[in-house]
Design a protein around this nucleic acid. Sequence first.
DNA 1: CAAAGAACATACTACCCAGTATGTTGTCAA
DNA 2: TTGACAACATACTGGGTAGTATGTTCTTTG
Lengths: 213, 213
Amino acid sequence: MLGARDVVPDSSTADILLAAADCFMERGYSATSVDDVARRLGATKGRIYHHFPSKSALFAGVFQFGMDRIFDAIEPYRNLPGPAVDRWKRIAFVHTNRMMKSKTLARVVWEGVEMHLRGATTPEQRVVLDGLVKYRNSYSDIFRETIVQARDEGDFNFEDPAITVQSMFMALNSPIFWYVPRPGEDDEHVHAIARQIVTFAYRGLGGKGELDL
Amino acid sequence: MLGARDVVPDSSTADILLAAADCFMERGYSATSVDDVARRLGATKGRIYHHFPSKSALFAGVFQFGMDRIFDAIEPYRNLPGPAVDRWKRIAFVHTNRMMKSKTLARVVWEGVEMHLRGATTPEQRVVLDGLVKYRNSYSDIFRETIVQARDEGDFNFEDPAITVQSMFMALNSPIFWYVPRPGEDDEHVHAIARQIVTFAYRGLGGKGELDL
DNA sequence: CAAAGAACATACTACCCAGTATGTTGTCAA
DNA sequence: TTGACAACATACTGGGTAGTATGTTCTTTG
């Protein structure tokens, strides 16, 4: 698998990654200082630079960590037998749920892709980000292949797959920008939101009838 | 109109705004230095600080300028008589086209909203951004009211308007992230892309039949 | 138990950058 | 013509920040 997880982070490293994810989400990459992350950890820079060679490597670590979590969500369903449209319903639904449940990490992944599109700063930083974005593209390829197959099977209906998959993904990802988790909220509430978003995308793709989730 | 254009920028100020928009789009707000903007202008900081009191004020200026352009696009159609669904088709189409034709400004507006959601830095910066985001919300309200009305008229079909309008907007806005203008490309190509995106959103909203654009 | 290294903290440096203070040039009105 | 002001450029400062160099403590291993 392209650039997939090479190392499982130990406990201390994982704490750093999560704290960094919080900071990157709240202020964005360049507005976040390494000291900010350390402060949130109740530690100092020394700890972070002991585990990561640079700020950009830290960001890459969060990106990787986040993509792993996102991949995990759809993994059980991505090879389901049967019509492609049913497979799409499953992975679209778990994906959208994961966007809300792991909103912080999802936002960092998003910013990583944005950074890549803008053209990251230094050359070697670029190489790292390139690999990660390929990893992320292999993810969206899963969706692309699924909807194209579903179209071939007569369940979906659209023109350009490139444009359509982008529209679909934006809709599915949208909650990372506006969803605010409430304290003590049950999973059913998140499911209800996901259901409406997936319904929107399902119809947008040309799906017929109701979808049962 | 809430926080609408109070001043029309003179030529020199407009040049600064456009250069700033380019920089903010390429590197993001905090990664862009005032010197970067000046360099792109072939000028120095002095020129910028002569027209804007601070970097955040410069950003606010670009935001306002961008929102004005976006409002302009739908202005001729927002009060069209007839069924709401037809009005929606028009404004959705011109909106999506504007996203591509004014991609740079649209991206800055997007980042402004993101900054606001994150909670902008200083208090007085917050006040300015609050006003601008209200301006921008009055824009999305137009869409919200339109789709709700169209639902009442039986042309659309969805559950929660808040969730649906977000999904719809994300789909319509998506090209600001992936559309790359080709040199010497004709408007018809942009129209074709916009048509597919609007079709996706139209179906997503529960619209029936084909839409003629 | 000693020594070596892991896992940090502390202290420091060089640089970038927002903002300011001040100089310079052109224009326009009286 | 002159003075006043607009529209910049130049020069400088203070604070923040990535990265480094060097302790310090604790754990592991022979």
